[in-house]
Amino acid sequence: MKILLGKVLINYPYFAAVILFAIGSATVLTRSNLFKKLIGINIMESAIFLMFIAAGSRRDGVVPILHMDDSLRPYINPLPSALMLTGIVVSVSVTAFALALIVRLYRFYGTTDAKRMSDIRNGVAKE
Protein backbone atom coordinates (compact mmCIF):
# COMPACT_ATOMS: atom_id res chain seq x y z
CA MET A 1 0.00 0.00 0.00
CA LYS A 2 2.76 2.38 0.99
CA ILE A 3 4.67 1.61 -2.20
CA LEU A 4 1.58 2.16 -4.29
CA LEU A 5 0.91 5.50 -2.60
CA GLY A 6 4.48 6.52 -3.19
CA LYS A 7 4.17 5.66 -6.87
CA VAL A 8 1.02 7.73 -7.16
CA LEU A 9 2.67 10.68 -5.42
CA ILE A 10 5.75 10.56 -7.64
CA ASN A 11 3.80 10.18 -10.85
CA TYR A 12 0.90 12.45 -9.92
CA PRO A 13 0.77 14.31 -13.28
CA TYR A 14 0.04 11.04 -15.09
CA PHE A 15 -2.77 10.17 -12.71
CA ALA A 16 -4.20 13.65 -13.13
CA ALA A 17 -3.98 13.14 -16.90
CA VAL A 18 -5.82 9.83 -16.71
CA ILE A 19 -8.59 11.34 -14.57
CA LEU A 20 -8.94 14.33 -16.89
CA PHE A 21 -9.00 12.05 -19.92
CA ALA A 22 -11.77 9.96 -18.38
CA ILE A 23 -13.80 13.06 -17.51
CA GLY A 24 -13.35 14.46 -20.99
CA SER A 25 -14.24 11.33 -22.93
CA ALA A 26 -17.21 10.60 -20.65
CA THR A 27 -18.49 14.12 -21.30
CA VAL A 28 -18.12 13.67 -25.05
CA LEU A 29 -19.90 10.34 -25.14
CA THR A 30 -22.73 10.92 -22.65
CA ARG A 31 -23.79 14.55 -23.05
CA SER A 32 -26.16 15.46 -25.84
CA ASN A 33 -25.53 19.20 -25.78
CA LEU A 34 -23.07 20.00 -28.57
CA PHE A 35 -21.27 22.67 -26.53
CA LYS A 36 -20.72 20.21 -23.71
CA LYS A 37 -19.36 17.67 -26.19
CA LEU A 38 -16.90 20.30 -27.43
CA ILE A 39 -15.84 21.18 -23.90
CA GLY A 40 -15.31 17.47 -23.24
CA ILE A 41 -13.05 17.26 -26.29
CA ASN A 42 -11.02 20.17 -24.97
CA ILE A 43 -10.67 18.63 -21.52
CA MET A 44 -9.55 15.36 -23.09
CA GLU A 45 -6.93 17.08 -25.21
CA SER A 46 -5.64 19.01 -22.19
CA ALA A 47 -5.18 15.68 -20.43
CA ILE A 48 -2.94 14.46 -23.24
CA PHE A 49 -1.00 17.73 -23.31
CA LEU A 50 -0.46 17.36 -19.56
CA MET A 51 0.82 13.81 -20.01
CA PHE A 52 3.23 14.87 -22.77
CA ILE A 53 4.61 17.86 -20.86
CA ALA A 54 4.96 15.80 -17.69
CA ALA A 55 7.02 13.34 -19.73
CA GLY A 56 9.43 16.12 -20.68
CA SER A 57 9.72 17.85 -17.33
CA ARG A 58 12.03 17.07 -14.44
CA ARG A 59 12.41 18.34 -10.91
CA ASP A 60 14.71 21.35 -10.47
CA GLY A 61 15.06 21.56 -14.25
CA VAL A 62 15.74 24.95 -15.80
CA VAL A 63 14.50 26.56 -18.98
CA PRO A 64 16.45 25.18 -21.94
CA ILE A 65 17.66 28.54 -23.25
CA LEU A 66 21.41 28.85 -23.70
CA HIS A 67 22.30 32.26 -22.41
CA MET A 68 19.78 32.56 -19.59
CA ASP A 69 21.35 30.29 -17.05
CA ASP A 70 25.03 29.42 -17.11
CA SER A 71 24.89 27.02 -14.15
CA LEU A 72 25.06 23.42 -15.30
CA ARG A 73 21.80 22.44 -13.74
CA PRO A 74 19.81 19.90 -15.77
CA TYR A 75 17.28 21.46 -18.08
CA ILE A 76 13.87 20.14 -19.02
CA ASN A 77 13.29 18.41 -22.35
CA PRO A 78 11.97 21.15 -24.62
CA LEU A 79 10.72 18.82 -27.37
CA PRO A 80 7.42 17.75 -25.73
CA SER A 81 6.59 21.36 -24.91
CA ALA A 82 7.24 22.39 -28.51
CA LEU A 83 5.14 19.50 -29.78
CA MET A 84 2.31 20.41 -27.47
CA LEU A 85 2.36 23.96 -28.79
CA THR A 86 1.54 22.41 -32.17
CA GLY A 87 -1.06 20.25 -30.49
CA ILE A 88 -2.67 23.33 -28.93
CA VAL A 89 -2.77 25.03 -32.34
CA VAL A 90 -4.50 21.98 -33.76
CA SER A 91 -7.00 21.84 -30.91
CA VAL A 92 -7.74 25.57 -31.32
CA SER A 93 -8.52 25.05 -34.99
CA VAL A 94 -10.73 22.05 -34.25
CA THR A 95 -12.57 24.08 -31.61
CA ALA A 96 -13.07 27.02 -33.97
CA PHE A 97 -14.38 24.78 -36.71
CA ALA A 98 -16.73 22.95 -34.35
CA LEU A 99 -18.04 26.28 -33.01
CA ALA A 100 -18.77 27.46 -36.53
CA LEU A 101 -20.69 24.23 -37.20
CA ILE A 102 -22.64 24.63 -33.95
CA VAL A 103 -23.60 28.18 -34.96
CA ARG A 104 -24.84 26.86 -38.31
CA LEU A 105 -26.86 24.12 -36.63
CA TYR A 106 -28.29 26.53 -34.07
CA ARG A 107 -29.48 28.87 -36.81
CA PHE A 108 -31.40 26.04 -38.41
CA TYR A 109 -32.77 24.10 -35.44
CA GLY A 110 -32.89 26.78 -32.75
CA THR A 111 -31.25 24.44 -30.24
CA THR A 112 -27.81 23.09 -29.41
CA ASP A 113 -29.07 19.77 -28.11
CA ALA A 114 -28.36 16.76 -30.31
CA LYS A 115 -31.42 14.83 -29.12
CA ARG A 116 -33.81 17.69 -29.82
CA MET A 117 -32.20 18.10 -33.24
CA SER A 118 -32.89 14.51 -34.23
CA ASP A 119 -36.42 14.83 -32.80
CA ILE A 120 -37.01 17.86 -35.01
CA ARG A 121 -35.55 16.08 -38.01
CA ASN A 122 -37.78 13.06 -37.47
CA GLY A 123 -40.80 15.29 -37.02
CA VAL A 124 -41.42 14.30 -33.40
CA ALA A 125 -41.02 17.74 -31.85
CA LYS A 126 -41.85 21.18 -33.15
CA GLU A 127 -39.08 23.73 -33.65
Partner: peptide, 10 residues
Protein backbone atom coordinates in the same frame (compact mmCIF):
# COMPACT_ATOMS: atom_id res chain seq x y z
CA UNK B 1 -11.53 36.21 -39.78
CA UNK B 2 -12.84 33.64 -37.31
CA UNK B 3 -14.14 36.39 -35.05
CA UNK B 4 -15.85 38.23 -37.90
CA UNK B 5 -17.48 35.09 -39.33
CA UNK B 6 -18.82 34.02 -35.94
CA UNK B 7 -20.22 37.49 -35.21
CA UNK B 8 -21.78 37.67 -38.67
CA UNK B 9 -23.42 34.28 -38.36
CA UNK B 10 -25.03 35.41 -35.12
Amino acid sequence: TLFFTMMEEE
